[in-house]
Design a binder for these strands. Structure first.
Lengths: 160, 160
DNA sequence: GTGACCATGCAACTTTGTTGCATTGCCCGG
DNA sequence: CCGGGCAATGCAACAAAGTTGCATGGTCAC
């Protein structure tokens, strides 16, 4: 009951055609367990709780994951990009809910009909290869906290 | 017929409640004439063709513009954020078309019904304050160039 | 064994801003 | 007219998020 998640992510790597190494497994595991989109710095912190990891190596692993379609990289509205494991969402692009208070970025399930490009008219000035949607707001947890402690709380990055 | 655009942007500043200074007018003029969303570095280059400008001052002017609702700041998928004048689009948020070849970011007209949040289900896990949509693809100009010169052109940042 | 390749690490660098502090010009009350 | 204060600007140093170049150590094919 302790290494079975490791086996699961090993299978993910294999399916994506990525050779498994201890560090790649750890990174994939962290992403898989997070359930939210993480910034590279967050991933670094979490992996390092279990094993040393150089940031360059992390960036290279993330590049590889994105390349092979295992992970998705997207802009979070903040400076750092975020990464999430595609597996949870059938490797399909999905949109993200970004809480402006705590900084957490949730991956939302893929939804057909979320973006209606035809609303822009019939002659879009470019050949579309991808669409990124980010929804900014205040998450339920932060809203509850705000109600409890008065409406002027402004803590950033409680938990990523 | 040469300073009338300057008068126009002066009126924009006034309407946004921003005191006009020579540099602010120049920055607003550059943004207004660009018609596309520009990165800070691009704005710096363009303003400097006419006048010295420190980058710190530019960032402060941009912050002010965004604060007052005159300009919009959004993430471009690349590292740098982009800025565009809200005026062209009735100061309403709009979405952006980002060409992956030349790096240009077009502002698309505001379209009702572009994003259908209800597609995500009735219980969105956060109180929405804003939605950012970016459409990635290849613009008409780059597509034409690719057709003319063979399909493997890959120039980045021809003109912003 | 030997050469080649791959994953990893370290240090230095780049890009995109940000912060702290100094300077300058302008207005306002006296 | 004078002095204080404030707003706009500049300079230098800093900071975050990556990126690049090069070294090292392990593994595999021959």
């Amino acid at each position: 009951m302790d290494d079975s998640p490791t086996n699961a992510v090993a299978a993910l790597l294999a399916r994506a055609g990525i050779e498994a190494t201890p560090l790649r497994l750890l990174v994939a595991e962290v992403l898989d367990q997070a359930g939210v989109a993480l910034a590279a710095a967050d991933i670094l912190t979490r992996v390092r709780r279990r094993h040393d990891l150089n940031k360059v190596t992390l960036y290279r692993i993330l590049d590889l994951f994105v390349d092979k379609g295992l992970a998705l990289r997207h802009s979070s509205g903040e400076r750092a990009k975020r990464y999430c494991l595609g597996s949870r969402f059938a490797s399909k692009p999905h949109c993200h809910a970004h809480c402006l208070r705590c900084g957490r970025t949730l991956c939302l399930p893929v939804a057909e009909g979320l973006v209606n490009l035809e609303a822009l008219g019939p002659d879009l000035p470019l050949a579309v290869t991808g669409v990124e949607v980010r929804i900014d707001g205040v998450c339920a947890a932060c809203a509850a906290k705000a109600r409890a402690k008065g409406p002027s709380v402004d803590a950033k990055r409680g938990k990523p």
